[in-house]
Simulated scan of single mutants.
Amino acid sequence: MADALLQVQDLHAYYGESHVLHGVSLDVREGEVVTLLGRNGAGKTTTLKSIMGMIARRDGSIRFCGRETISLTSDRIARLGVAFCPEERGVFASLSVQENLMLPPKIAEGGLGLDEIFALFLNLSERLTSPGGKLSGGEQQMLAIGRILRAGARLLMLDEPTEGLAPIIVRQIGDAIGSLKARGFTILLVEQNFRWASALADRFYVMEHGKIVESFESSRLAENMDKLHEFLSV
């Protein structure tokens, strides 16, 4: 078994006085796609933001490439090789597609060039000079994912990449993530669309009320379907 690239142990997170994460533990091994499932409000996004250093108050341990990062700021975590694509996408509306793609700094070798990104997301190559604010929701999602692929990050964290998108765009994004997986990228994915995620993930964690309540590998998916129906109401 490969060593864990990311190890989260007994993670607690707070928004003000609200205790949101209650001892979350998970790991992601190099080259895996790991999906974090759960209903709205279960703590999935907070988990990603905590790993990225975007939650001010956190307790526990987050180790990336063997280094403890719980006390590091977001910019330092990013420079270690963690990239985050938020649910709200964060596209710069006044910048062109090309400017958005070129904005993040390169932190290491192994990132994709523009031609490789356009091969994954053909729509972007056709909208190269268009302002980010003029793109469709699906194109903005492609741009948000494409933007983090240039940097050379070792871990990609994608938060709800199919939320609110048309089925044809969902398929295109699934194909792109499948291609990244085939190339050895490591991905931690938060997703409501379980059936879509099930075709991509190597392992699953299920969250409820800020805790991990179940975990299993894709080979055990069929035997866990009843539990997933209960936890996710799908």
Score class of each variant (00 low, 15 high):
Glu160Asp: 09
Leu165His: 11
Ala153Asn: 10
His229Trp: 09
Phe185Gly: 00
Leu155Asn: 02
Met207Leu: 14
Glu214Gly: 01
Lys181Val: 07
His229Glu: 15
Glu208Gly: 00
His229Ser: 11
Ile187Trp: 03
Met225Ala: 11
Asn224Lys: 14
Asn193Lys: 14
Ala199Gly: 14
Arg203Thr: 03
Leu149Lys: 00
Glu223Tyr: 00
Thr186Asp: 06
Met207Cys: 07
Phe231Leu: 11
Ala197Asp: 11
Met157Ser: 05
Phe231Ala: 13
Leu156Asn: 02
Pro167Leu: 07
Ser219Asn: 11
Ala166Thr: 03
Ala182His: 11
Gly178Ile: 04
Ser219Tyr: 08
Arg195Gln: 14
Gly152Trp: 10
Ala201Met: 08
Ile148Thr: 13
Leu189Gly: 00
Gln172Met: 12
Glu208Tyr: 07
Leu188Pro: 00
Gln172Leu: 12
Leu165Trp: 13
Asp226Lys: 15
Met225Lys: 12
Tyr205Ser: 04
Leu165Ala: 11
Asn224Ser: 05
Ser219His: 14
Leu165Asp: 10
Leu232Gly: 07
Ala199Val: 13
Ser215Phe: 05
Tyr205Ala: 02
Asn193His: 15
Leu158Gln: 01
Met225Tyr: 13
Phe231Trp: 15
Tyr205His: 04
Ala182Ser: 15
Phe194Met: 11
Thr186Asn: 02
Gly178Lys: 14
Phe194Trp: 04
Ala176Val: 09
Asp159Lys: 07
Gly152Val: 11
Gly164Trp: 05
Gln172Asp: 14
Gly184Gln: 08
Ile148Glu: 06
Gly184Asp: 03
Ile177Met: 06
Glu160Pro: 04
Leu149Pro: 02
Ile148Val: 15
Glu163Phe: 10
Tyr205Gln: 06
Arg220Cys: 12
Phe194Tyr: 08
Phe231Asn: 09
Leu228Met: 06
Arg220Met: 12
Arg154Met: 03
Ala153Val: 05
Met225Phe: 11
Phe204Ser: 07
Trp196Asn: 10
Ala197Tyr: 13
Phe216Asp: 06
Arg147Met: 02
Met207Gly: 06
Trp196Phe: 15
Lys181Cys: 05
Ser179Pro: 03
Phe204Lys: 09
Glu230Phe: 10
Gln172Ile: 04
Ile148Phe: 00
Leu149Ile: 01
Ile212Trp: 04
Ile145Pro: 01
Leu149Ser: 00
Glu223Arg: 09
Leu149Ala: 00
Arg183Gly: 02
Met157Tyr: 01
Phe185Pro: 01
Ser219Lys: 15
Gly146Asp: 01
Lys181Gln: 13
Gly178Phe: 03
Gly164Met: 06
Glu214Cys: 03
Ser215Cys: 10
Leu188Trp: 03
Pro167Lys: 08
Ser218Gly: 08
Glu230Ala: 14
Gln192Ile: 09
Lys211Thr: 08
Gly178His: 12
Asp159Glu: 08
Val213His: 01
Val213Ile: 15
Gly152Met: 08
Phe185Thr: 00
Asp159Phe: 06
Tyr205Asn: 05
Ser219Trp: 08
Phe204Trp: 07
Leu221Trp: 10
Phe216Glu: 06
Glu191Gln: 03
Arg150Met: 10
Ile148Ser: 00
Arg203Ser: 12
Gly146Pro: 03
Asp202Tyr: 02
Lys181His: 14
Arg147Lys: 12
Pro167Asn: 04
Phe185Ser: 01
Ala199Pro: 01
Glu214Pro: 00
Met157Lys: 04
Val213Thr: 10
Ser179Gly: 08
Ala199Phe: 10
His229Leu: 12
Glu214Val: 01
